[in-house]
Amino acid sequence: MTDKPADIVETIKRLKKAYAQTVIALNFSSPLELLAAVILSAQTTDAAINSVTPALFTRYKTPRDYAEADITELETIIKRSGFYHNKAKSLIGMGRTLVEKFNGQVPQTMAELIQIPGAARKTANIVLWNAFGKIEGIAVDTHVARLSQRLGFTIQKDPVKIEKDLMQLVPHDEWGRFPHLIQNHGRAVCFARKPRCAECFLNDICPSAFKV
């Protein structure tokens, strides 16, 4: 155990070794599908979203399909994603915004993506990196927030402030991959309630190891 923040370069090196094949957990085959999936993923698991998106993507193939969707039908398809009333509204708003503002295309900049209903910085970062290979920031979800705090990279709780701290520490060329590495570790070892510190390959550099 140490009282100092974990060394970010060593942390990333070990994470990349452990999760060499890490990729985004959401299933998608186009930027539109990814955008819809990430909007749906708020406050639920990627596995839950992957269980509803096959039917969703079969029924809604274009932004106009979402824009003109019957909300009751859409809610029925995405019900298992949780908070489906608000998410259905966001998906319809997404479709309308893409049609009306972006010529039916998923935009490729942060400034444009955050204009879409249901898409804040986290969503935009995920879409930019995983659909277009572009980097403007670091996606901060619950795993990234929790582990970044435990590793001593931030004391912030607000995702935007956490992102700013991470952008100062994480090498720029790792911004896109870093969230996936952290998410894998959060799912496999560093659980929210009972992290498996004794088995963790970061326990010699993590300031929170054995404290929980």
Rank of each mutant, 00 (worst) to 15 (best):
D3C: 03
P5Y: 11
A6N: 01
A6C: 09
I8M: 05
K16Y: 01
Y19D: 01
A20L: 07
A20N: 14
L26V: 02
N27D: 15
S29H: 14
S30T: 14
P31T: 01
L32E: 02
L34I: 09
A36D: 00
V38S: 02
I39T: 06
Q43Y: 04
D46M: 12
A47R: 14
R59M: 01
R59E: 11
K61T: 12
T62N: 04
R64I: 03
D65R: 09
Y66V: 04
Y66W: 05
Y66F: 15
E68T: 14
E68F: 05
I71W: 00
E73W: 00
E75M: 15
I77E: 00
I78F: 12
S81C: 12
G82C: 12
F83D: 00
Y84D: 03
H85D: 09
H85W: 04
H85M: 05
H85N: 14
A88E: 02
K89T: 11
L91V: 04
R96S: 10
T97Q: 01
E100T: 10
E100G: 04
F102G: 04
F102Q: 04
N103E: 15
Q105T: 00
P107S: 07
Q108D: 02
M110K: 07
E112V: 09
L113G: 14
Q115I: 00
Q115M: 06
Q115G: 04
G118L: 06
A119V: 15
A120D: 12
R121F: 08
F132N: 05
G133K: 02
K134Y: 03
E136G: 00
G137W: 02
I138P: 05
V140D: 09
D141H: 00
T142G: 08
H143Y: 09
V144D: 04
A145P: 02
R146M: 10
Q149L: 10
Q149P: 01
R150M: 07
L151W: 13
F153R: 04
Q156C: 05
Q156W: 00
I162N: 10
M167N: 10
M167G: 09
M167T: 13
L169I: 11
V170F: 06
P171L: 07
H172G: 00
D173K: 13
D173H: 14
W175T: 12
W175E: 10
G176H: 10
F178E: 01
F178N: 04
P179F: 11
P179L: 08
H180E: 13
H185T: 06
G186I: 03
A188K: 12
V189H: 03
V189L: 13
C190Y: 06
F191Y: 12
F191A: 09
A192W: 03
A192D: 01
E199S: 13
C200L: 11
L202S: 10
D204G: 05
I205M: 14
S208N: 08
K211T: 14
